[in-house]
């Protein structure tokens, strides 16, 4: 018998990690989309830098 026997526990753990990975990837995409929307809307303004104020 192999030490690395594939058990239901390993499958479940893999599915959980895969699910979490996909959720995190989707979150990154969502954050990117949100950022793009926020910085391209008309009311978005950058804080003036100290050099620009001088």
């Amino acid at each position: 018998m192999s030490f690395r026997v594939e058990h239901d526990l390993h499958k479940r753990r893999f599915r959980r990690n895969l699910g979490l990975g996909l959720v995190l990837a989707a979150f990154v995409v969502l954050l990117f989309g949100l950022t793009m929307v926020k910085v391209t809307t008309d009311d978005f303004t950058m804080q003036p830098t100290s050099e620009a104020r001088d």
Binding site: H7, D8, L9, R12, R15, R16, L18, G19, L20
Partner: peptide, 21 residues
């Protein structure tokens, strides 16, 4: 054995993605 593995599973809370959902 598989039986003991299953016992460990429930005790250690080795839950699947669907369980969290």
């Amino acid at each position: 054995s598989d039986a003991s593995l299953n016992t460990v599973t429930s005790q250690t809370g080795e839950a699947g993605f669907g369980d969290y959902f």
